[in-house]
Design a protein around this nucleic acid. Structure first.
Lengths: 146, 146
DNA sequence: ATAAATAATATCGCGCGCGATATATTGTTA
DNA sequence: TAACAATATATCGCGCGCGATATTATTTAT
C-alpha cells in the first residue's frame, strides 16, 4: 500500500475526471449547435481571429496537427469552416469560418454561458476560487507544455 | 467578441489541456510498464482491493462500463488481469490481478513518483497549492458527477 | 410460477489524441 | 544550382470515452 499509488492521492486522476465531466456538461448545448467540444475550441480560436493556418490553431490549442487536421476535415464537412491553400506558402492550409460558422457565435453565446452557469449553481466554488484555479492550471500547463 | 466565449477565459479548456499534458508526462514511465494511463488507473483500483466486478471499477473511476469493458479486455490480453464470472451473481465479471499485475505495483512505485517529481521540479506550485487544487477539483467533480 | 422490470456486462459506431510515417513545399548550404 | 535539411500538412493505426443498443441473469410483481 504505497500512498503515492493510491487513487485518492492523484492530482492527475482528478484533472482527467474533472475535464471529462465538465466537457460532458457542455454536451447538451453543443449538441444543439451540432458540434463537439474540440470543435467548439476550434471555433473559439477562429472567432477570435479568422483565417489561420492549421499550425497556428494547433499551437493555440496545444494539440498536434495530426489531431487538428481530421478535426478540421470533419468541420469542413459540417459546413462551418473552409480551407484553402496559402498563396505565398503553398504548404499551408488556411482555415476560415463559413457564414454558418460565424453565425454560430451568436447561438453559442445565447446557449453556453447560461447553460453552464445553471449547472454550476450547486458548485461551492466562488469567483476567486475559479481565478486561483485558472492560475494553478496555467502553472501546470506551462510546466508540461513543449 | 464575447468575453465568455474567449479561449483565455475558459476553465474547461485549461482542465482539458492540463489533463492531457499531465497524462503525457506519465507516458515515459507507463511505456516502461507496458500500459496506458487509463490502464494504470484500473491497476490502482485493483492494487487497493483485488477482485472487483466491472461495475465497481467503473464507478470508482467515474467511467461508463462500455469504456471499462474493452479496457479490461485489453488488459487481460496483456496478462495483467483475469476475469471470471461471479458465482452468486453470474451476470458479474470479477476482475482480479494476475501475478504479473500484482508485481507491477513495485515497479510502478520505483518509476512513477520519482519520474513525476522530477518533471514537476520546475512547477512553481507548492504542496499547499496542490492540496487546494485537489479540493477545488473535487468540488467540480462532485458538482457534475451523476 | 410466469411475465415484466431491472441490473451487469458487452457490442457497435464515431470522434478524438497521438506516435509514427509520408508527402509536398520551402529554405539552406555546399 | 543541385543536394539536403527543415517546415506544413496529411495519413495510418490504436486506445480510449461515450451514446445507443443488445444479451444474459436476477429481481419483482402479478
Amino acid at each position: 500500500m504505497y500512498a503515492e499509488l493510491q487513487l485518492d492521492n492523484q492530482v492527475c486522476f482528478r484533472l482527467y475526471t474533472a475535464a471529462r465531466l465538465v466537457t460532458q456538461a457542455y454536451a447538451p448545448m453543443l449538441t444543439e449547435l451540432g458540434i463537439t467540444y474540440p470543435q467548439y475550441l476550434v471555433l473559439m480560436v477562429l472567432w477570435e481571429k479568422d483565417c489561420q493556418p492549421v499550425n497556428d490553431i494547433a499551437r493555440r490549442l496545444l494539440l498536434e496537427t495530426n489531431t487538428v487536421t481530421p478535426l478540421l476535415q470533419r468541420m469542413e464537412k459540417l459546413g462551418i469552416i473552409s480551407r484553402k491553400r496559402g498563396e505565398q506558402d503553398k504548404r499551408q492550409h488556411l482555415v476560415s469560418l463559413t457564414v454558418k460558422g460565424r453565425d454560430m457565435e451568436q447561438k453559442a453565446y445565447s446557449l453556453i454561458p447560461a447553460g453552464m452557469s445553471e449547472q454550476l449553481a450547486s458548485c461551492p466554488l466562488k469567483l476567486e476560487d475559479y481565478q486561483r484555479l485558472v492560475q494553478e492550471l496555467d502553472s501546470i500547463i506551462n510546466t508540461f507544455k513543449k
